[in-house]
Structures are given as C-alpha cells and as structure tokens.
Simulated scan of single mutants.
Amino acid sequence: MKTRRFGKTNAMISEIGLGTWQLGTKWGEPFCAEEAQKILDAAYDSGITFLDTADIYNDGNSELAISKILKAHPDHFFVTTKIGRGLNPHTAEGYNKDSVVRFTDGCLSRLGMEKLDLVLLHCPPTSVYQKDEVFDALENLKSAGKIAHYGVSIEKVSEGIAAMEYDISAMEVIFNMFRQKPIEELFPAAQKKDVGIIARVPLASGLLPGKLSKDTVFGKNDHRFYNRNGEAFDKGETFSGVDYESGLTAVSELKALLGTENLIPYALRWILMHEAVSVVIPGASKTAQVLQNVKAAELPDLTPEQMAGVKAIYDKYIRPTVHHLW
C-alpha cells in the first residue's frame, strides 16, 4: 500500500482508506458487529491505515467497533470522525460551543481515545462554515489536547473555500468520475493552504462499479430508493446527484473506454491520479469489498488518453446537470 502526506497534519497515511458508514451493514440493513470486526481486520491486513467514521454511523456502533481494532493495533490507524449530524433539528443554530464539545466528548468515549486524530464538521448548513464560534470551539479543543486536528466535510465547493479561511487541516468532499468540479478551484486552493483532501463517495453510491441496471430494485430503507431527489438529505449524496439513467449510460461508455466490466479499481485509481487527494475512502459491507478496493493500489496510472476519455464522458453525460450544483 502506498502512502501519502495528509496535508498539514504531516501524517503519512495509506492512499486507500476505509469509509465506515456501511461498516457491518448493507444498504439500510441492521448492523452486525461480527462482520464489522472482520472488515476492520481485513483493512489492517491489507495495509490500510486510514479510517473514516462519524458519531452517527450505525448509531455509534461504527466508532465502538473501531475502538476494538485500535486496542488490538495501537498506533496503526489514523482515525477521522465527524460530528454534528446528530442534531435534531439539524440547523445552523445547533452548531455552537456546547454542542461541539458534547459531540467531541462522545466520540472520545466511543473510540476509547485520549485524543482524536481528526474531527470534521459533518456537512452542516452552509452558514456554519463561516461561524466563528464553531471554529473557535474546535481550536479550543485542540489547545486542550482533546483533538489533534480539525476540518470539515462539505457538500459544495463554495463551502470548502469558505472553511479554508480558518485553520483547518483537512477537508472531505465528494469526488469521483461523476463529480469533477473540485478539480477546478477547490483542489488548487487546498494545496496552497496545505489542507489534506479526503475523497468520499468515490463510487457514486454503487453506480460507478458497473453492476447496477435499469432493472435493479433497491430496498425501501436504501437511500438510493428514497432520496433520488433529495427527499431526506442533499441529493448529491445519492448517486453523486447524477440522474440514474444518464449514469448507467455513462458507466457503459466508461466500461468500453477502459476495457473492463469491473470499474472499481479504475474509478479509485482515477481519483488517486489527482495529487491534491490524500486518501480515498470507499466503504465496505463485507471483507471481499475491502480486498477489491485495495486492488486500485496495484493498478498502473491511467494513460493520458484514458483520463481525457473519462473527462469527455463526464462532459457529455454528467456536467450539464451536476457541475453547477455542488
């Protein structure tokens, strides 16, 4: 596994990490602690050193599962957790000094850590990215030794630009073959300020691997069923905001371009072709998916022709309806 420097944290982390939203669970299904531990063990065995979680993932069970692997392998993993989405209602007013401290303390307890490696605001309302009280609270937690670094997880490029007015160390952003806008302004700005980039939703909610079809049926608890138009949360989280039918057409052309039916390693390698990216965090609901994901580390760089081809497909099928929104 290759490593990359993680911005101003100066940590060297595996370029492929593990996102734990699906840890021990499939889309919308109950959490399984035993399966979660198998996935984390597979990540360790594969050389993954970067874990991404959040206080709300599986009602805190993702953090609890991670706490066990941290005890088994101290000093191996760099753990990023996210706070704020547990607010109900999820409003800008809910993000304040007291809530930031409360959520951070909860993460420390569940993860069993004395100091959190990195805490991110978890896609809060846009105005929060310019809220001095919130970033002052994070800075105070850093000074108090409860967190080593802090940053943001964003929906929109504009939110990331605003957040970099503060002393953030890292940023998590949706970035994949179907969400290319960050390349233009966000990545250069992050590199200039030495902000590490975590690429999330790298496979566009399962659209990019190439296994879905127009006949695929999604369960009622699967956000790919109930959030196509943003009914429950930002629609950019579901299929990266791409129209499903257009996405299937684009995937077909990507398969032809890259000469494969399995796009997973190519989709991850495409992300890693961008030097601003520190780590990509595909999720896994079973150990086989971890092993599949890490194959991208062994794949040669995509050729200039392949990179140009991916951009052409994006420009034709995705850009007109997606690019301007996020």
Rank of each mutant, 00 (worst) to 15 (best):
M1T: 14
K2E: 14
K2N: 13
F6K: 02
K8N: 10
K8V: 04
T9P: 10
M12G: 02
G19V: 07
G19K: 08
G19A: 07
L23G: 02
G24F: 08
G28I: 12
E29S: 14
E35F: 01
D45I: 02
S46H: 05
I48W: 03
T49Q: 04
F50W: 11
T53W: 05
T53G: 06
D59R: 11
G60K: 06
I66G: 04
I66F: 08
A72R: 15
H73M: 06
H73L: 05
F77E: 02
F77W: 07
V79L: 04
K82N: 08
R85N: 11
R85V: 01
T91W: 06
A92Q: 02
E93L: 02
Y95R: 00
V101Y: 14
V101N: 03
T104Q: 06
C107F: 01
L111F: 08
L116T: 09
H122D: 13
H122Y: 11
T126M: 07
Y129G: 06
K131P: 05
V134W: 00
D136W: 04
A137D: 05
L138A: 09
L141D: 03
A148P: 00
A148C: 11
G151I: 08
I154N: 00
E159D: 13
I161L: 15
I161S: 02
I161R: 01
A162S: 15
D167K: 13
I174G: 01
F178C: 13
P182K: 06
P182E: 12
E185S: 13
L186E: 01
A189G: 03
Q191W: 00
D194H: 12
G196F: 00
L203R: 00
G206W: 05
K214H: 07
F218N: 06
N229Q: 14
A232K: 15
A232N: 11
E237H: 13
V242W: 03
D243Q: 10
E245P: 03
G247N: 06
A250K: 01
V251N: 01
A256E: 15
L257V: 05
T260C: 09
Y266A: 13
A267C: 15
I271M: 04
L272D: 03
S285L: 07
T287Y: 04
V290L: 04
E298S: 14
D301A: 14
P304I: 05
E305Q: 15
A308D: 15
G309L: 02
I318A: 02
H323V: 00
H324A: 13
W326F: 15
